[in-house]
Design a protein around this nucleic acid. Structure first.
Lengths: 263, 263
DNA sequence: ACAAAAGTGTTACAAGTACACCCATGT
DNA sequence: ACATGGGTGTACTTGTAACACTTTTGT
């Protein structure tokens, strides 16, 4: 199992892999409070780090885009089909595989909704773990997970993201619960509701749903801003140009601090 | 110069390179208005795309981190030493090298100040181009540049970024000019000044500098928020825990500390 | 004194927070 | 009717845009 001496190793071209940090909302912990984030991990079946839990991933496929490679790797290891898959970061420092071959990982970031998370059958080598009770991870995957969770928390205030963690249709209360779970803090429900609605990305389906045993709540679905489905008014929708590598950072910045005056 | 047939090419492991989009502030265009962003490009000296202009870059060095590789590639092609070097995105779609071998590029993003940009000697194969008059670029480098510039504009409102494009010491008016140049729009000077100062990242040096022929302006330097240099009051500074891979999203990274290749 | 640039104040409006309140519904 | 959750109103605080204004300097 030797890889040769140091200089031989350094002469090797680096291998390129894709890994995915997937998150889904799952049940709460022991204290029975809010729900938590859970992530699926796979157990390594070969050296190095045999037996350790790791992020799902695989080799980059030369005939596919990075994103497709990530999707395929995910599909083949976990059967999950995330609703959002976005590039997070590339990791490639020489010490990350600790004695193995040099390895570059392009890490993607994904979210699946509750429905899919439930359907997902655990196997011996694939299991969900709650965010705050992860096992020891292989390689530098712990750092990667932390990086991803930090990013998620920064952006959870945007409808685009929260809605990914619930099903395609949801009530505002469900969304609210997600926001609280991810951020780990109390969020004022009244204001949350207004903020979401103000974004103009939520469309009422017309249905109602009862969560407790009381008054039923309106059900919404997510639509990209400006893409109302007919019936209300003019506003000839701008196509919202979603180019391939659309990531959320655009929206984030919009909301933050546009320097430019109205002009 | 053949690379074999398609299936042979696909069987090759992808090559990994690093490229850098560098920007600096340079003179204005023909209309004589605001200054513009300029970026250095290098001319390709071999196939494919021989003779075309391209982003500076090089192969990933197996014994260095991604960031260090980017720094070294930059140094060897252009002699520039950016004050900030941050990972932007990884590009690896199969069509990007158009018939060549599969290629993954980890793209970094850098800014150099006016002083260094001036010292930089152009050579036959290295030249500055204004952002709005780029030549036709090799590969998909045009897309990469657009991506980088979009990001830069989104974030130029933050002191951390805008200060990178001027020297280590600067007046508020200089900063303001940068913000206008990058955003391409008018920015109210009074409000700009207040916003920068409110961030608490600017520290007066005590010096004064005359820009025109009138009243001299206070000179500032950038310091991370909360790191006043003594003399004012208690406030026992929190160390601001800068972990390695911190990125701009939140508190914009320390950025340069572990950059020096000697480390 | 004047012009030009540095720097400050003031008002108006938009967004966000906290919290009180009314409405709809099943028991 | 009343408890429970859905949904709205309102006052207060904060941030920012716009632009008028005062101060400092060299000629």
């Amino acid at each position: 199992m030797g890889f040769g001496n140091v200089s031989e190793r350094l002469a090797q071209p680096p291998r390129v892999g894709v890994s995915v940090v997937i998150v889904a909302l799952g049940p709460a912990g022991s204290e029975g409070g809010r729900s938590r984030l859970w992530l699926p991990l796979v157990r390594r079946v070969r050296q190095p780090h045999l037996g350790r839990w790791a992020l799902p991933g695989g080799d980059l496929r030369a005939d596919r885009s990075l994103r497709e490679s990530a999707y395929l790797a995910l599909e083949s290891t976990t059967d999950l089909h995330p609703r959002c898959l976005e590039q997070l970061h590339a990791f490639g420092d020489p010490d990350r595989s600790r004695g193995g071959l040099p390895m570059v990982s392009i890490v993607y970031w994904a979210m699946v909704d509750r429905g899919e998370a439930r359907d997902f059958a655990e196997r011996d080598n694939v299991r969900w773990f709650p965010e705050d009770a992860l096992p020891e991870l292989a390689f530098d995957h712990r750092r990667i997970v932390d990086h991803a969770l930090r990013r998620l928390r920064e952006r959870i205030a945007y409808p685009e993201l929260v809605t990914r963690l619930v099903g395609p249709e949801f009530t505002l209360r469900e969304l609210h619960a997600v926001a609280e779970a991810v951020s780990g803090a109390d969020v004022d429900l009244a204001n949350f509701r207004r903020r979401m609605l103000a974004g103009g990305c939520l469309e009422e389906t017309g249905e109602k749903r009862r969560e407790g045993r009381q008054r039923p709540a309106a059900v919404y679905r997510y639509v990209r801003a400006g893409e109302r489905s007919f019936e209300d008014g003019p506003m000839g929708g701008a196509p919202a140009a979603s180019d391939d590598s659309s990531d959320v950072s655009g929206r984030v910045a919009d909301a933050m601090a546009p320097l430019t005056p109205s002009a």
